[in-house]
Write a protein that binds this DNA or RNA. Sequence first.
DNA 1: CGGCACTTTGATCGTGGTCAATAAGTGTGG
DNA 2: CCACACTTATTGACCACGATCAAAGTGCCG
Lengths: 250, 250
Amino acid sequence: MTALNAARPLIIATCARPSPCGGCEARKVGFCAPLDEEALHAVASAGERRTFEPRQSLFNQGDPATHAFILHEGTARLTHLLPDGRQAAVGLRFGGDVLGFTTEPTHHLAAEALTMVSACRIDRHRLDHLLSQHPLLERHFLELCTRELAATQDHLVALGQFTAEERVAAFLISLIEAQECRGQHGPTYDVPVTRADVGELLGLTLETVSRAVSAFRRRGWLRARGVHEIEILDRNALASLAIGERQEDQ
Amino acid sequence: MTALNAARPLIIATCARPSPCGGCEARKVGFCAPLDEEALHAVASAGERRTFEPRQSLFNQGDPATHAFILHEGTARLTHLLPDGRQAAVGLRFGGDVLGFTTEPTHHLAAEALTMVSACRIDRHRLDHLLSQHPLLERHFLELCTRELAATQDHLVALGQFTAEERVAAFLISLIEAQECRGQHGPTYDVPVTRADVGELLGLTLETVSRAVSAFRRRGWLRARGVHEIEILDRNALASLAIGERQEDQ
DNA sequence: CGGCACTTTGATCGTGGTCAATAAGTGTGG
DNA sequence: CCACACTTATTGACCACGATCAAAGTGCCG
């Protein structure tokens, strides 16, 4: 058993990562981070800026995959609907992430805004062309995709092996980390999703999610500040659950 | 509810896909498919061919990610070990797939051979260099990564929403499809994994996997031919479970 | 204030986990 | 070739975690 693995919580969330370079807001994170001027301009002019209301969909499952989206502001989630009506959420996406970039002719997932979202909608063919024109851009896409894959694999491990409380803890920790990556610090974080949304992300019912949060609150690990805001009181306790160290204590 | 979604089973398996081009065996599928002569030669000479016994590991969780592997022959699996000893499997990988290609300094997953495996081990820096030299190669990597992501998302949906029998059915169907992609046809397929392995892939115990297979056998959906070989008798029944149409019938 | 969506909590049930015993393969050496 | 050890698979009995069903409770917006 190779014990010393750098354990990390499930990441439903942060695929794009911050980069040290400064400049305009949109460039600090993810997609726009290390691109040269030319590529940046090419992408901006090839795409079309759009905004979406909360719960509005960027694209639906089954839609022809004619466009990809680059998320600038806000939070979105990717969902999959099963033939019998069950719905699963595959992850959350934030500023800097790319959505709907697929090799298949139709979107296999739907993308839905959770908050106000501003995104750049770009034609797939034009994007492919841009990728072959700008090696840096293509490299950047490969890196984003690799990270997104790693995050999805973490999520998969969590759904395969974690208990309900571990999953909820992992969700909270990765939500926090996503916000810290984007400059939101302090013990208070906002939770832009309902209990039902969290349930769909974690393969749990909304009641089970609620019970887990209540249990954390009862143990003094967190406190509710308004409905969609939480204050973390014992991050270590949550983090320990979130990486899959079984709780021996109470 | 956009009903007409092209439903597909969970794919723990096939990321590389066959390509129409002929030529040497290694080129028919996945990694080596559409590469130009030059890139192909460059990769072959930069990497080092290695073979692995069943249950031998290509790399371990926590190892420095100094090399990536291109799988030529055989089946491998990617696993993650939790601090408390629980183990999860993230997927199976076959000929043409790339393993251990990560942006992080260490491998977060382990890769283990299930059958005899022949793979090409290549230094990460040299690979990065090759990628920037050969746009076709980089494009190919991006495509593989995108497919692997889609497969992992399917897997995730299955672990989030499927019952035990649905998961096992989905596993069998995707195993079959992976073999058909690689030229193995006929109603008989081999299952290069133990019940415990399947359990780790599906977030189930080995007993539950065994019960599901027994149930399928009892219903006349399949028959065991030797230990690691099954004959599919009613593929439609399995496929229906595998895409998440709830079984009304017994 | 009413209406509505979301959350919390409780009671009960069922799927799948756990523990255990047996059976069936698989490989090794006598 | 069989005996033996060992791994893997099957099946059963029981139990627990989380789903389901149900009913308050809470916050938000018109």
